[in-house]
Amino acid sequence: MKKRFVSFLTILGMGAAMFAQEAEAAAASGAAAAGAIKYLAAAIAVGLACLAGGMAVGKIGAAAMGAMSENPELSGKALPFVGLAEGICLWGMLVGVLILFK
C-alpha cells in the first residue's frame, strides 16, 4: 500500500512539473490559459510537499515522543529530526514560488 501511495505522489509531482513546462510554453505563445496552469502546478507542488511533510512529522514525532518517554535525555537528539521533516514543506513552497515567478 505504501509503495503505491509513494508512486502516486511521484506521478503527481511529475505532473506538476509537466504543467509548469506547459504553462511556460503557452505563455511564450501568448495563450490566456497559461496562468491557470501555472497556478495549478504551483498548488500541486506545495500541496504534495505539505502532505509528505505532515506524514513525516507525524511518524518522526511519535517515535521521538516514545523514545523520550523511556529516556528523557534523548529530547535534544530527537527533536531536531522533526524540524528536518518540516523542511520538506519549505522546499515545496520554494518550488511553488519558483514556478510562479519563472
Rank of each mutant, 00 (worst) to 15 (best):
A43G: 15
I60E: 03
L79M: 15
G30K: 09
G61V: 02
A33H: 15
S7F: 15
A43N: 03
F8N: 06
S75C: 04
S29I: 15
G58A: 11
A17K: 05
G13E: 05
V57W: 05
A27Q: 13
P80Y: 06
L40G: 01
A32F: 05
P72G: 11
G54M: 11
K38D: 04
M55L: 13
E70S: 12
S69P: 01
A64C: 12
V46H: 01
L74S: 09
A45C: 10
E24W: 02
L74F: 11
L51F: 14
K77M: 01
G58V: 04
A34E: 10
P72W: 02
S69G: 12
L9Y: 07
I11R: 03
P72L: 08
F8Q: 07
A34C: 09
G66P: 00
V82E: 06
T10I: 15
A63R: 06
G76C: 02
M18E: 06
I37P: 00
A26S: 14
A31L: 15
A42Q: 05
M65F: 08
L9A: 10
A20G: 08
A56L: 12
V46M: 12
L74R: 01
S7Y: 13
V82P: 00
A28H: 13
E70F: 01
P72V: 05
A26K: 15
A34K: 06
V46A: 13
P80G: 02
F81E: 00
F81V: 02
L51R: 02
F5D: 15
M14C: 14
P80S: 06
L9G: 05
T10N: 12
A45N: 04
A36L: 13
P72F: 02
A43H: 04
F8C: 07
E73R: 03
A20C: 13
A62Q: 14
G35R: 09
A49N: 06
A25M: 10
M55H: 04
K38G: 02
G30N: 07
G66K: 08
A56E: 06
S29A: 15
A49V: 08
A25I: 09
L74K: 09
A32P: 00
G15Q: 07
A45F: 05
V46D: 02
L12C: 15
A33M: 13
M14N: 10
M68A: 12
L84V: 14
A27Y: 05
G53F: 01
I11Q: 04
K38F: 02
A36P: 02
A32D: 11
G58Q: 08
A41W: 02
A26Y: 07
Q21I: 13
L74A: 13
A41L: 05
A78R: 00
G61M: 04
K38A: 09
M65C: 08
